[in-house]
Amino acid sequence: MSDTHLVLHGLAIKKNGTPEAIADLMGLDAGDVRAVLASLVETQRVVEVQGKYLLAPLARLALDADYARRYGALRADPVFAAGYEGFERINGTLKQVITDWQTIAVGGERVLNPHADEDYDGKIIDRLGALHERAEGILAGLAGVLPRLEVYRDKLTGALEKAEDGDIAWVSDARIESYHTLWFELHEDLLRLMGRERED
């Protein structure tokens, strides 16, 4: 896969990304990404704002149209397709786990979880750990076809272990590469590869 495509694809997932973050996620060399970004800025396909990069609107349309051509074989691969379907199935569980993390049921109503009860939080992180074990199997299958997806497994494990060690921001904080942030980036990555639309 060409570096230029991967940089554009990375920017579609990590909007407002730094070259380092894009390189990290797409498995590229940071220096190469900087060079690609510089040429993309020159041809006005990417805009730089304070060291972070955004896709220009037309480049986004061109990218969206490009997936079917590039990933026809991947979409037809039964192993990859099965992995994707498996991911969609446990995606519902993940969202429920995160919702239970953020809110608690109080007499049938859900209110925000004040994270005052370590026992409750610990149980949710345990559920996340159980889900992660299922996700690892699925990711191994996907990465067997598309090796760059391996990075998600390492990053997800890292976020999970930080949460298990008590740094609970790593569960769902939207401002860092928390478990939930990474999961949604992975989902976005897969949706684009497979040419599917997000349902909610």
Binding site: K14, K15, K95, T103, R110, A174, T181, E188, E199, D200
Partner: peptide
């Protein structure tokens, strides 16, 4: 995920589709 910067900037979020476990809610 590509809406994150807009969500951070906003005072509230409204969506047409999705429930209490959707990306916007989470």
């Amino acid at each position: 995920p590509e809406d994150l910067h807009g969500m951070i900037a906003a005072r509230a979020i409204v969506t047409e589709q999705g429930g209490s476990t959707s990306h916007a809610a989470v």
